[in-house]
Design a protein around this nucleic acid. Structure first.
Lengths: 256, 256
DNA sequence: CGGTAATTTGACGGCCGTCAAAATAGGTGG
DNA sequence: CCACCTATTTTGACGGCCGTCAAATTACCG
């Protein structure tokens, strides 16, 4: 049993975090991850405004999506971790609204958008989970919008680190108060709408107060509780109750 | 035929903008709009962190969603127009992640979340459309993130006005270079992460340059093209091609 | 060990926030 | 139709956060 779990695709493992899957469902999902392709650091997966025939699962490594501005700057919209679906929101415009590039080397699996409508037509349960994933991503973006609009640089940095810490600790159970964050200060600046110089100053400030240590890509948070307070971080927006949802729809199913 | 269209619910009309609906589908959708309820200006529809048993369709009037900050300020996340679904992203956490309040008086129709899973189980086509709507909302938020992160106050204001103008011109075909925007400068400030004072200054600046006139809630844009340029506005992110999507899934259906 | 990328530091300036007061508009009741 | 009250908008003065530019320092990688 455990051996089988280990052989699950990354996406299936991620979904199983949300709900139990039967064999048909697991198979449908695995279909999305049949064409692994290794990609190098900084490689682009696609560019904004190009037609979106396929989107992809990120099986290994980190990636990010962004929009380029006329003046040469850019705004990063999302950071993706292993097991994430990239490009879900390009479904309707059938056009990539953002560019996507790797932050590390990794493995991705492209699949055509039609696979999604196949899932809609075949498995209401998986559809529910997909819909939840989309809502989850939107919640993250909403929280980042709050971050950008109403917080200082100090709070922005702290809040973002908290978000990544929490997301990581779900995927990798061995994440503690030390973890790896493969984002340069320039990347952090482009995520948070700040300048790289000011990111540096902010890290210095947090370091001097003993709240956060960062060297290269290594992060250490001595006192997580204190750090959450600096960030005004609340983890509610990253919570989920898909299992309750599925129970509801199943109970309903039995009645028919 | 035309008489029937006039009797359609607001949501059905909105969906028909995207794709033709057969009778079963129209009925499923109408089920979401069976319990109209008039609401007054500034009335709250729900508050953040409360359990989300129902979400709603906005049938008439304008609304907005926001998050309150500890220091008493707030960040507005979304502006809703007639025909919009409010609360879609609360589906998975089963908890309202934002507060929602009215900007004008209006009519809303609450419905339980279970209706969504019913749709998933019954109509893959409607599911596709729902998924597209969710993606559409996410695209709007992504664009606003870009706006907040990498643009000046002047550009932020102009861009937001452009977005509203475009969204309105789809719902109300009689929207021209003059239209109604029932948002106070304080509300605009809370949308754009600025202070109300600076919003006022920015409007003055745009007025003096002859680019935008605003009195009370009335907006006039003498030269739309010139104004788009101030905003660096591109309308790609608000485009849709759901019909192609549906054709794909139908073609597929016939093959079985 | 040389070359490039990433980070740090300092000086300076500008955009935008805050505070406060004045002006304007809208709404209500007499 | 006017008097009054409140919400909204405008204007000015001032300050701070953060951006820009540039140079120095450090880390990384072959």
């Amino acid at each position: 049993m455990h051996a089988m779990l280990d052989r699950d695709s990354c996406l299936v493992r991620n979904f199983k975090y949300y709900c139990a899957l039967d064999e048909t469902e697991a198979e449908l999902l695995s279909a999305l991850e049949k064409t692994p392709q290794t990609v190098s650091n900084a490689q682009m997966l696609w560019e904004e405004n190009h037609p979106a025939e396929t989107i992809c699962v990120l099986s290994e490594g980190w990636a990010y999506s962004y929009r380029s501005m006329d003046d040469g700057t850019r705004q990063i919209l999302n950071i993706f971790l292993p097991g994430d679906l990239i490009g879900l929101s390009d479904f309707s415009p059938r056009r990539h609204l953002t560019s996507v590039a790797m932050l590390t080397e990794g493995v991705i699996c492209r699949f055509p958008l039609k696979n999604l409508t196949d899932i809609f037509a075949t498995s209401p349960r998986l559809t529910t989970v997909l819909f939840s994933l989309a809502g989850h991503q939107q919640a993250i973006m909403a929280e980042r919008l709050v971050n950008m609009g109403r917080r200082t640089a100090r709070e922005k940095v702290a809040h973002f680190i908290c978000e990544m810490h929490l997301r990581l600790s779900r995927t990798c159970p061995n994440t503690t108060h030390r973890f790896n964050l493969p984002l340069s200060q320039q990347v952090l600046a482009d995520v948070l709408g700040l300048s790289a110089v000011h990111i540096s100053r902010t890290f210095s400030e947090l370091r001097e107060e003993g709240l956060l240590y960062r060297e290269r890509n290594r992060i250490e948070i001595p006192d997580l509780k204190a750090f959450y307070e600096v960030a005004n971080f609340s983890d509610i927006y990253l919570s989920d109750s898909i299992n309750e949802l599925l129970k509801c729809s199943e109970k309903d199913h039995h009645l028919r």
